[in-house]
Simulated assay, not measured.
Amino acid sequence: MPGALRGPDRLAFLLALVPYLQDHDTVSVTDVAAHFDVTPERVRDAVTLIAVSGVPGATNQYQHGDLFDIQWDEFELNDRIVLTHLVGIDDAPRFSAREAAALIAGLQYLSALPENADRAAIASLMAKLTRGASAPPTQLLAEKSGSADALALIATAVQADVQVEFDYLNGAGEHEHRFVDPLRVESVDRDWYLRGWCHLRSAVRTFRLDRLVDLRVTDRPRTGQPVSALPDRLFEPSAEDLTVVVELPESALPLLADYRPERVTDKVHTEKVDGDRCRVRLRLASFHGLKRLVTGLPGTVTVIAPGEARRVVADWAAAAAAQYETPAAPTERA
């Protein structure tokens, strides 16, 4: 049985009741009582009090337009509550149509994350933003990444508390079969990463979603590795990492933050050379990771050592350039 409300509880109930009624065009007294866990009599008394409350207008007197109003026939005959006039609440600042649209787009993005698999609260908030904006917000749809299907499968595995299974294209370009306890999904710019306990390596590992091949949800239960087992940083150095020396302008050092976020400005690992250029030692999982670095900073980074790293990048660049070669015409070949 719902208990009697104390003074502070009565005030909190009244403050929560008006927005609730505003969100419901028509609602029965019994439904309101069940929602707030109070008696129907308490709801009727509160509605009666609200109907004679308001904000004094310019005359400092409570005129008809200065008070809340309800459909009294519905209330007295059918025990239903329908607000017909609001005061005070409508004067509160509102989001503009553009602000509401931006927030709704952000919520659409968040709803794709596995940890937000229960999207009821997000959908309710988007509906409130739409109703509460000063004008109808522009209809926007957040672009879904190519990893949307993988995100959905990982969310299913998290809810079922089971492992995921996939073939993974590692940094060396090799496929390996993995069983992983999914712990967290994170994004860096446009790339998504799965962080979890890898049963092949018996350690926490990070996987790019666009490198997962044939991702499946298994019936193998997770081993109970806690989320607290995850390192603070997304990318952690490993004893198997390879050391590479690259040369670039000193002003471009911050662009290497994704590769060595903790040491790009460390003088021990940075050596000044001619002019404003400097050499930096990086640690990568494989030399193939240099392809992404060179592509992202064309003409800025020069690979200095070791020789194998230079060969990998040179071969890759030559293969790319060969795709643009124009075959000679028949007469020219003759």
Rank of each mutant, 00 (worst) to 15 (best):
S147H: 11
I70D: 08
G289Q: 15
A150M: 10
V162A: 03
H24I: 08
G307P: 01
V303I: 14
G146V: 10
V213E: 14
S111P: 05
S134E: 13
V264G: 00
D210Y: 02
D181P: 00
L17E: 04
P2W: 03
G88K: 04
Q108E: 15
A142S: 12
P137I: 12
D31L: 08
P136V: 14
R195V: 06
H288E: 14
L255W: 06
P93N: 06
P298K: 06
R119G: 08
F207E: 11
S251H: 05
P327E: 09
A142N: 11
T223D: 11
A105W: 01
V264A: 04
A105L: 14
P137H: 11
G57K: 04
V313W: 06
Q225L: 02
G132C: 10
T130L: 03
D149Q: 11
P237I: 07
P306K: 02
S111M: 13
D274F: 05
A322D: 14
L15M: 13
R211L: 09
D189C: 03
K144E: 09
L169G: 00
I304D: 03
E176P: 00
D91Y: 01
P306N: 01
L293D: 06
F13Q: 09
G275P: 02
Q163H: 05
Q163I: 03
T326R: 06
R119T: 15
P237R: 12
E240W: 00
V188G: 03
P136D: 04
I70T: 09
G57N: 04
Q159K: 10
I89N: 00
R220T: 13
A257T: 13
I104P: 02
H199N: 09
Q63S: 11
F207S: 10
A148I: 14
F235E: 04
Y324F: 15
S238M: 10
E262Y: 08
V87F: 02
I104V: 12
L141Q: 15
P2L: 04
L248P: 05
K128Q: 14
V55T: 12
R281V: 14
V213N: 10
I154P: 03
D214C: 06
Q159R: 15
I122F: 03
A92F: 11
R220N: 12
P2K: 04
D69H: 10
V47I: 15
L141R: 15
T243I: 08
D266R: 07
Q139M: 07
A33W: 05
S147W: 02
P2Q: 01
D161V: 09
A4T: 12
R211W: 03
D90H: 03
V217H: 06
E271V: 14
W316A: 14
D118S: 12
L209K: 07
A320I: 13
G296V: 11
V303T: 09
R216T: 14
F166V: 01
E174H: 10
V303M: 06
E247S: 15
A334T: 08
G3D: 07
L215N: 02
R281M: 12
F95T: 06
A127H: 10
A229N: 00
